[in-house]
Design a protein around this nucleic acid. Structure first.
Length: 793
DNA sequence: GGCGGAACTTTTTTT
DNA sequence: AAGTTCCGCC
């Protein structure tokens, strides 16, 4: 998120834009009455209950345009908060389009975290513990740094890191920060968590952060709140500045964010919160549905406006989703409606196992490609999404789609800036920019290997501590005094000298930061490290490093870049090509697709067992909202499926269909009979079609009894013994293996790297990979080496 | 101190 | 099943 606001002027600008008030307001055109009301109710607290697909972003952006056009506020006097950078970006774009000019720089539109950073930088000195305080240049730690730091603290207490994992402590501390509980405010009972060490370690962690001049994600919010609470003058400044506040996804706010908003809004109360209690799916990270349910109490006299006209889905889809969500208690309630044509019912299908499920979905998608569903209109791969509960479900689809050559993209996988090589490179940059960044130092001092192991690090740490200097400085002393022996010493000297040189280069106007970055990676030996690495993913890592350098072009210097990356961990997803999207349900929030597949609706997976164990009924309700979010992503066709067997930790486990399946309203669901099940062999066909004594395959039978029927249970029992017959794929693999390869050919595989063909049968090759090991691989899965033939995958 | 194999956990979701 | 961490040997 890039909030460029170069002005320190926080006094309100006179309403000089009144002149615009009389003009026509094109941004009002085409709004429905509710949307229009939402746009025009400018003053006082407003709660906008916006159901899925009701044009919420449209209302929000039009509202901002209206505020500006009416001269109610200057751009810099409006605060608009979102949860994700993506949402912020989209809003910025759309407002820009509405106004016909870019809004960059003026409007305070960003994530809670991004805006908090902006505020904190200006008052960093006010955050401290009496002895130490933050400096405006503070760094933001990510989860990785956070955990490494905590691990050190745990070890410093002589605790067994196995019994008290740093991850768990991090989770605990995050939870406290989400609720704005500083170590001092921590209730006695909570402080005793982590076997009595919780409070103490938390305090130690906060102190350590301060000495590092660093904050973590949770601090960004918490420090802001404590800042406002302890310094009313500062709070007043910001209250005066932000005359109008808008909040997106209000149902996802946690306690800290709620306090943050309340403090800022309590003077003028011009706050407009947009949300949908039915789409609250982040309770596990501290979000409080209660915030939205309580809004009218928190802000007496609030106007509540409901957006209920849905522009996205067919009535069948809406009805199925509404029926499902009605099982939740304590909703604010709303009735979605649409003018769209009825469309197809939500489809439901069961499979033997997760592999059959993936296979079937793959075939369905291919059938769309062949135009077998003309009623839907044209369906391209970009129109299709597979939404899973847990990311491990993705593998089955990736494997299957690879073998049949179906292009797909995984959205929200391991993110670019979280990759090892990127984080290493960034640690180099960090150390060069701020030589006192001890965490960065620790990360890279021995990467690439410089013969500096635990002992050397300990020595450096001790020297640094004794002299009260950062680690890099400590290393310099170690080098000067020759505390280390042999090779390590020479390497450490080279490293220290190198960092010193790059640091000087960074201040040299004549050297661009891009050139500097390349120089750092080359001279440090980091690039060489990967060039010499023979593992199959090494080339990919080098590509990523190139991409990282390219990303630098958008910034003026390394500092600016590092600042940006700390908050924006995502990268633009390329969508130039036609690909099916695979993502988690959480990742799908806010998106829409004509065709949606919802696999894995099994008890334990969805609703997730852990969610149920840890949060009981509340957990189930959140899972149900997640199901609701999933169904409402679909515009024209939604297909829910479940499998009788699924591999978990490498073990086959049988499972029952999700309770949510039973909750779908029968009249909006069409039950399909899975392939390979008719013929009576397994008794499963009876389970599906026979329960209602109907023998038609497409009978409606979304009936709880179906899944308790003897047939279903038999299927459960037998599925482990019988393998599903593999249905003939509707796509022919380009050619048989023989046509493309001969024994002895060199081939390359996306996952396993390069290897040699040792044998083949039909479309399957036996390959000996250079990384060691034989694998049987579908021919379509590998690429000939040394040829440019475009064999799919 | 580095490397390789064994043993052990993990998989809910993320700013 | 796969990724990580741990441990013992070089």
């Amino acid at each position: 998120m890039d909030l460029i606001d170069d002005s320190d002027d926080v006094t309100p600008v006179p309403l000089s834009q009144r002149a615009m008030a009389g003009r026509a307001a094109p941004y009002l055109d085409g709004l429905n009455p509710a949307q229009r009301a939402a746009v025009e109710a400018l003053d006082g607290p407003v709660l906008l209950l916006a159901g899925a697909g009701t044009g919420k972003t449209r209302a929000l952006t039009s509202r901002i345009a209206h505020l500006l056009a009416q001269g109610r506020a200057h751009q810099r006097q409006i605060l608009a908060v979102t949860f994700t950078n993506k949402a912020a970006r989209e809003m910025k774009d759309r407002i820009g389009r509405l106004l016909g000019e870019a809004v960059e720089g003026m409007l305070w539109l960003g994530t809670f975290h991004g805006i908090s950073v902006k505020i904190l930088r200006r008052h960093a000195e006010l955050i401290g513990n009496g002895e130490l305080h933050l400096k405006p240049s503070f760094t933001i730690l990510d989860t990785d740094d956070q955990i490494r730091l905590l691990k050190q603290l745990i070890l410093a207490e002589n605790l067994d890191e196995k019994r008290w994992p740093a991850r768990q402590l991090a989770h605990l501390i995050d939870g406290w920060k989400n609720r704005c509980l500083t170590p001092a405010r921590l209730p006695q009972g909570e402080a005793m968590a982590f076997d009595g060490w919780g409070g103490k370690l938390y305090q130690a962690y906060q102190d350590r952060l301060l000495t590092l001049n660093a904050v973590d994600f949770g601090d960004l919010l918490m420090h802001c709140v404590t800042l406002f609470q302890a310094h009313p003058d500062v709070l007043k400044q910001w209250q005066d500045r932000f005359r109008y506040i808008l909040v997106d996804e209000y149902q996802d706010t946690n306690v800290a964010q709620y306090m943050w908003l309340r403090l800022l809004a309590q003077a003028h109360r011009n706050i407009c919160c947009v949300g949908d209690d039915d789409q609250s799916i982040y309770g596990w990270r501290g979000a409080e549905v209660g915030n939205i349910l309580r809004f009218e109490k928190d802000f007496p006299g609030a106007q509540v406006i409901r957006l209920e006209q849905n522009y996205r889905s067919t009535p069948q889809i809406l009805a199925a989703a509404s029926g499902l969500i009605s099982a939740n208690a304590g909703r604010l309630g709303k009735t979605l409606w649409t003018e769209a044509e009825a469309g197809e019912k939500v489809r439901l299908i069961g499979h033997w196992d997760s592999e059959a499920e993936a296979r079937w979905i793959g075939e369905e998608i291919e059938a769309f490609q062949g135009g077998h569903r003309a009623a839907l209109g044209a369906v391209g791969l970009n129109d299709i999404a597979i939404l899973v509960r847990a990311s491990h479900q993705m593998r089955a689809f990736e494997d299957r789609f690879m073998t049949i050559g179906l292009p797909y993209r995984v959205i929200g996988g391991p993110r670019f800036y979280e990759r090892q090589e990127i984080r290493d490179a960034m640690a180099y940059f960090r150390l060069v920019v701020s030589p006192s960044d001890d965490l960065a130092f620790e990360r890279i001092v021995n990467t690439p290997k410089r013969g500096l192991g635990d002992k050397a690090i300990k020595t450096i740490q001790n020297v640094a501590r004794q002299n009260a200097v950062p680690l890099l400085e400590g290393a310099r002393i170690v080098v000067g005094e020759g505390h280390l022996g042999g090779k390590g010493l020479a390497n450490l000297r080279e490293f220290v000298v190198g960092v010193g040189r790059w640091h000087a280069d960074a201040l040299d106007e004549g050297i661009s930061h891009i050139e500097l970055a390349e120089r750092i990676l080359d001279e440090s030996g980091y690039t060489a490290m990967w060039q010499n690495d023979k593992s199959p993913d090494a080339p990919g890592r080098l590509d990523n490093l190139k991409e990282l350098i390219k990303a630098l072009e958008e910034f003026d210097n390394l500092q600016g870049f590092l600042e940006h990356v700390a908050l924006v961990m995502d990268r633009d997803e390329g969508d130039a090509t036609e690909e099916v999207s695979i993502m988690t349900l959480h990742g799908a929030k806010g998106l829409e697709f004509p065709v949606v597949f919802l696999p894995g609706w099994e008890d334990g997976l969805f609703p997730n067992q852990r969610a149920m164990d840890e949060n009981g009924t509340k957990g189930v309700e959140e899972e149900r909202r997640l199901a609701y979010v999933g169904i409402t992503r679909a515009e024209r066709l939604a297909t829910i499926s479940f499998a009788g067997n699924r591999r978990l930790y490498g073990q086959w486990q049988s499972s029952m269909p999700s309770r949510f399946v039973d909750e779908l309203p029968e009249e909006h669901v069409e039950v399909l009979t899975p392939p390979g099940l008719y013929g009576g062999g397994y008794g499963a066909a009876m389970a599906f079609a026979g329960a209602n004594a109907g023998t038609q395959m497409h009978d409606r039978a979304a009936n709880a009894d179906v899944y308790n029927s003897p047939g279903w249970k038999r299927m459960q029992a037998r599925a482990t013994q019988h393998k599903t017959p593999v249905p003939r794929s509707s796509v022919t693999i380009d050619a048989s293996a023989e046509a493309i390869f001969t024994v002895g050919d060199r081939v390359s595989h996306a996952k396993f790297g390069e290897g040699q063909v040792m044998g083949m049968a039909e479309d399957t090759l036996t390959v000996q990979f250079d990384s060691g090991g034989f694998k049987n691989i579908k021919a379509a899965y590998v690429q000939p080496v040394g040829r440019d033939d475009d064999v799919p995958f």
